[in-house]
């Protein structure tokens, strides 16, 4: 039994890895761009999911994303910090902010936490606009194209970060963190009684989530070459972070990634076919998922489709 399980896991995984590594050679620049944008979204989705595992539903990831983006861009502009180091700096600064935010919102439950995260991102927009001497204000900050415009390098970088996120989530699932996060999510008071310190784990989840979200922001600023507050702190970014995991399946590794792939594909299709309000799909997806498949696509897969395959005799 042991060797056949490994075969089932490693073969598809190997094919997937080969495909991902060879991808830039297989497609043109347009698809490569779509892939980079898609992978960036996957990182945001997975990071959001890490935080959500502790029951903290953030609708303000844009705040951390924007901090990462601006840190990287401003450090380049002021001190010529190389972009990749800038992204790292962005990640670290976002993490630092998240510690602060995490402690501040500790006692907020459910929806009040979410509202506060929205307020956080919006407050940042206002602060940014009102302090142009420090932040560049409404005019934004521009940087030269990442890697001189070499999209392949950008792809490999962002792919590496995605791999890092996936690895971290996998490690979380293998460790005691998984139990702690789930217990806190299900019932924080009971978790406390069980000897799990909610503070420690909630802030930790926030930090991990913020690190990758901040890095993604830094990447975004150099890849897109120009950022303004209204774009990077935008609620739309925060919403995108949560629609994908919910669609694909919460609290899983594959869920956020799956959700992102499908939503991005649907989005691009809708954008090319219709002009208007393709964002309407986000709204519709959220409503339908909550009403009819609250465990997302993966839940649907495991609950309805997988059993169909299990009609074979025992394993």
């Amino acid at each position: 039994m042991g060797s056949s399980i490994r075969w089932k896991t490693t073969l598809p995984l190997a094919i997937l890895c080969a495909f991902l590594l060879l991808f830039p050679k297989l497609v043109g620049s347009y698809f490569l761009h779509l892939a980079v944008s898609g992978i960036l979204a996957m990182i945001l989705a997975s990071s959001w999911d890490i935080l959500a595992r502790t029951g903290q539903v953030s609708v303000g990831q844009a705040g951390l994303f924007g901090i990462g983006a601006y840190s990287s861009a401003l450090l380049y502009q002021r001190y010529a910090l190389p972009p990749v180091l800038g992204m790292l700096a962005g990640a670290l600064i976002a993490t630092f902010v998240s510690i602060f935010l995490g402690y501040l919102t500790l006692r907020l439950r459910g929806i009040y936490f979410s509202i506060t995260t929205i307020a956080f991102a919006e407050a940042l927009t206002v602060i940014w606009l009102m302090t142009p001497d420090i932040t560049g204000g409404a005019m934004g900050v521009s940087t030269p194209p990442l890697f001189g415009g070499d999209r392949e390098k950008a792809y490999y970088l962002i792919l590496a970060i995605l791999a890092a996120v996936v690895a971290v989530v996998w490690l979380i699932e293998q460790s005691r963190l998984n139990f702690a996060f789930t217990a806190i999510r299900e019932n924080e008071d009971v978790a406390n009684v069980l000897g799990i310190n909610p503070t420690k784990y909630k802030v930790l989840a926030f930090m991990i989530s913020a690190f990758f979200t901040g890095f993604a922001g830094g990447f975004y600023s150099h890849y897109n070459t120009y950022i303004i507050p209204y774009e990077v702190f935008n609620l739309g970014v925060s919403i995108a972070c949560l629609v994908m995991p919910i669609f694909g399946g919460l609290y899983t590794i594959a869920g956020p990634i799956l959700g992102t792939v499908l939503i991005k594909a649907i989005e691009e299709y809708l954008r090319v076919t219709f002009s208007y309000g393709h964002q309407i799909a986000y709204g519709l997806i959220l409503v339908l998922v909550v009403l009819f498949m609250p465990e997302g696509l993966l839940g649907l897969w495991r609950g309805k489709i997988l059993p169909l395959f299990r009609s074979r005799p025992g394993r």
Binding site: I5, W7, K8, T9, P12, L13, I15, L16, F19, V27, F31, L34, A35, A254, I257, L258, V261, L262, K264, A265, E268, Y269, V272, T273, L298, W301, L306, F309
Partner: peptide, 24 residues
């Protein structure tokens, strides 16, 4: 079980990229 999950994801990823290729 895990393997089937990954296989599924693989199939869907490839399908996703292929789908994008057949855009109008």
């Amino acid at each position: 079980m895990r393997g089937k999950g990954f296989g599924f994801v693989l199939v869907l990823l490839v399908a996703g990229y292929a789908l994008a290729g057949f855009l109008p």
